[in-house]
Simulated assay, not measured.
Amino acid sequence: MDINDITIREARQEDLDHIAGIYNSLWCNWIRASGALDDWALCGRLNAAMQLQRSPITLVAERNGGVVATCLVGIFDHGAPRTNPEWQPAYETLLAQATERAKTADDDLEGSLFGDSREKATADRFAASGNEYAQGQINLIVMRPEWQGLGLGRRLLDEARARMRDEGCSRFFLMSDNHSDYQFYDHIGMKRIAEDHSQDTGDGFIVYIYGGEC
């Protein structure tokens, strides 16, 4: 596989299920393994749409007509996140479905449906604090496992940086956690600028906030 065969473009509506599939392959396999395929699909689609509607810059990496990775980028205006109206209807529809499903869901499913939304509340508090890095945010960067380690993540981040510079950003941040592959951001030289422990429910969960230059 060669990343030179990759085309990077803006996301389209028909990409939602592809992005949701990548998201699910990384974080929601336990739902599929339980046999709850409708819940599995809803979880991926809701979280993908939530990230898309918070991202004025929506990049996908495409090869041979298939989406293999995505990088979704938020912009903050005076501490407030800019939204993407193109993705708002899909998000609102999926949010209503997930809210209804949560009425009868157990804690694990409810956490998978809405955990990313709670993390965004942490991001919004960080941005509202006036931190110098709170100009842009990498909301989501994910790729199919077979494309990891080939330089595609760095290529997507380079393109995201260029797009953020076009929006007037000089710095940006992103969020990871101690249950994810946060070492990648250490490896590419980003600076860990803050930690958040507010989502720790006794399992030692820590959100890491990294800062970078555009």
Rank of each mutant, 00 (worst) to 15 (best):
L52R: 06
E100Y: 06
R192M: 08
A33L: 13
L156G: 05
L174V: 15
G111T: 07
I57T: 12
Q137S: 09
T93H: 03
D166E: 13
L16R: 09
L95R: 11
S198K: 09
K103Y: 00
H179Y: 13
L52M: 12
A80H: 11
I193Q: 00
Q183G: 10
I141Q: 00
F126C: 06
E92Y: 02
M143H: 05
A90M: 06
A127V: 12
P85Y: 02
L46E: 00
G35P: 07
A194S: 06
Q199F: 07
W30V: 13
P85D: 06
Y208L: 12
A96L: 06
T104G: 00
L72G: 04
D158K: 14
L26P: 00
Q199R: 15
L95E: 01
H187C: 07
I138A: 00
R144A: 10
G65F: 12
P85R: 12
I141K: 03
R32Y: 06
I6F: 05
I141H: 01
S25C: 10
E119T: 15
T58V: 14
L113N: 01
M50R: 11
A33G: 05
S34L: 12
C28D: 05
S55H: 06
L156F: 09
L16C: 03
Q199G: 04
I206K: 13
A128S: 11
D77P: 00
D5K: 14
A49K: 10
W87Y: 14
E92F: 03
A121Q: 14
M50L: 14
F114E: 00
D77G: 02
G202F: 06
V67H: 02
F126V: 15
L26Y: 01
T58N: 05
G202L: 06
K191V: 15
Y182W: 15
W87D: 03
R32A: 12
A90T: 13
Y185I: 15
M190A: 07
D186P: 05
S34I: 13
A128C: 08
L113H: 03
V67Q: 04
N4D: 10
K191F: 00
D124K: 07
M1K: 12
T70H: 05
D77C: 05
A33P: 04
Q199H: 09
E14N: 12
N64C: 03
R54L: 14
A20K: 06
R144Y: 05
Q88C: 12
T7W: 01
Q51M: 14
L52E: 02
G211F: 04
C71L: 12
T58S: 11
S176F: 08
F126D: 01
F126E: 01
S180K: 14
G66K: 14
D166C: 11
G115Y: 07
G79I: 14
Y23W: 15
R45C: 04
T93I: 08
M143N: 09
W147P: 09
D116S: 10
P85V: 15
V73C: 09
S25T: 13
F114G: 03
K103M: 01
D196F: 10
A80F: 10
R163C: 09
D158G: 05
R125E: 08
W87R: 11
I193C: 01
Q13M: 10
D38G: 07
H18A: 11
E14R: 12
F173Q: 04
E146C: 09
G66N: 08
M143A: 14
I75S: 00
